[in-house]
C-alpha cells in the first residue's frame, strides 16, 4: 500500500522550505462575497460550553483551515455551520441566507469525520457516492447527467477501477476518499470537511491533496477542520485557531503550527526505518 509514496517522500523530506513560500499560487483572489458567516456563535454539550462566541467568515474561493487542540470546539463549530449542532446563541448564514431558511444543500459538500460510514449491509463505492447526488435529485430519479457526475467524483479520488467493490474492503484512506467523492458528487461550491486527513495513509493523503487542489483551482470554497496542516499547507489561505471555544488567531497559517505540521514532521512515520535515503541524511 505504501509503495507509491516512497517515490514522493524523499523530496519532501529533503526540501521542506521549498514548499512553504508559495501558499496562494492556484487560488483566485478573494472577493467580498461571503459564503459562510458565523457571528457570535455559542453552543453547549450537556452543561459544558463548547463554543463561547465564535466569529468566522469564509469568502468565495477561500480555503480556510480550522485548527486547534482536541476539545477546542473546531468540530462543533463546523457542524454548527451545517446545522447539525444547535446553537444556543449567535447566527449562521450560508450563501447569504440564514441557516434556518437555507434549502440549497446541493451547493454544499460535507465530509464528516470518518466514523463507521459502512452500514450493516454491504454497499459498493458507487452506491455510497451516489447518495451524495441526492441533494440534486431529491426524491426524483437519477438522470444521465447525475450518473456521469457520480462517475466523475469517483474518478477524481482515483477509485474508478474499484467502483464496484464493497466499501468494507477498503483501507482507512480509501474510505476517506469515498466520503470525499460522495461530497463532490453534487458538484458543490462549498466543501466542508471534518478532519479529512485523520488516519489516512500517505498515498491517500497525496491523492486527497491533489483532489482538493483541483477543486480549489476550479473556484470551490473550502472550510476544513485539521489537526495539523500537513500536505495541505500550500493550499491554505487562512487559518482560524480555536482554543476552549474561542477564536485565538485568524490570519495566515501560524508559524508554530506550520513548522509543527511540515511534511517532514508527519505524525505518521510508516517507513522511517525502511527508507534508505532518509537514514543516509540523518547519519
Amino acid at each position: 500500500m505504501n509503495h507509491p509514496t516512497e517515490a514522493v517522500d524523499p523530496n519532501r523530506a529533503a526540501a521542506p522550505e521549498a514548499i512553504v513560500p508559495e501558499p496562494q499560487n492556484t487560488t483566485p483572489c478573494t472577493t467580498s462575497d461571503p459564503v459562510i458567516v458565523v457571528r457570535d456563535a455559542t453552543a453547549t454539550l450537556g452543561a459544558r460550553p463548547v463554543l463561547r462566541g465564535v466569529d468566522l467568515t469564509v469568502r468565495r474561493g477561500e480555503v480556510v483551515a480550522l485548527l486547534g487542540a482536541n476539545g477546542s470546539g473546531k468540530s462543533t463549530a463546523v457542524r454548527s455551520v451545517i446545522g447539525q449542532v444547535p446553537l444556543t446563541g449567535g447566527t449562521v448564514e450560508l450563501f447569504g441566507t440564514p441557516l434556518r431558511r437555507f434549502r440549497d444543500w446541493a451547493r454544499v459538500g460535507y465530509v464528516p469525520q470518518r466514523t463507521t460510514a459502512a452500514g450493516g449491509v454491504p454497499a459498493t463505492i458507487r452506491e455510497v457516492v451516489s447518495s451524495g447526488r441526492l441533494s440534486r435529485t431529491r426524491l426524483g430519479l437519477p438522470r444521465k447527467a447525475d450518473r456521469a457526475a457520480v462517475d466523475r467524483a469517483i474518478a477524481l479520488v482515483g477509485l474508478a477501477d474499484r467502483a464496484k467493490d464493497s466499501v468494507d474492503a477498503l483501507s482507512g484512506g480509501q474510505h476517506q476518499r469515498v466520503l470525499i467523492a460522495r461530497a463532490l458528487a453534487s458538484e458543490p461550491e462549498l466543501l466542508i470537511m471534518d478532519e479529512p486527513m485523520a488516519g489516512v495513509d500517505l498515498a491517500s493523503q497525496e491523492i486527497l491533496a491533489e483532489t482538493l487542489r483541483e477543486q480549489v483551482a476550479l473556484g470551490t470554497t473550502v472550510l476544513l477542520v485539521l489537526h495539523e496542516l500537513g500536505p495541505l499547507e500550500p493550499l491554505i489561505d487562512r487559518a482560524v485557531v480555536l482554543r476552549d471555544g474561542c477564536v485565538m488567531h485568524d490570519g495566515p497559517p501560524p508559524k508554530a503550527l506550520g513548522q509543527h505540521a511540515l511534511p517532514g514532521h508527519d505524525h505518521v512515520h510508516p517507513h522511517a526505518a525502511s527508507e534508505p535515503v532518509r537514514t543516509g541524511l540523518l547519519s
Binding site: I82, G83, Q84, R103, D104, W105, A106, V108, Y110, P112, A117, G119, A123, E127, V128, S130, S131, G132, L134, S135, T137, R138, L139, P142, R182, S186
Partner: peptide, 21 residues
Amino acid sequence: GLRRQLFAVSQDEEFARVTGL
C-alpha cells in the same frame, strides 16, 4: 420506489440531513 433515499438515510443519517433530504 424510495430505495436510494432510504439507503442514504440508513447508511449515514447526518450526511443525509446535509443533503437536504
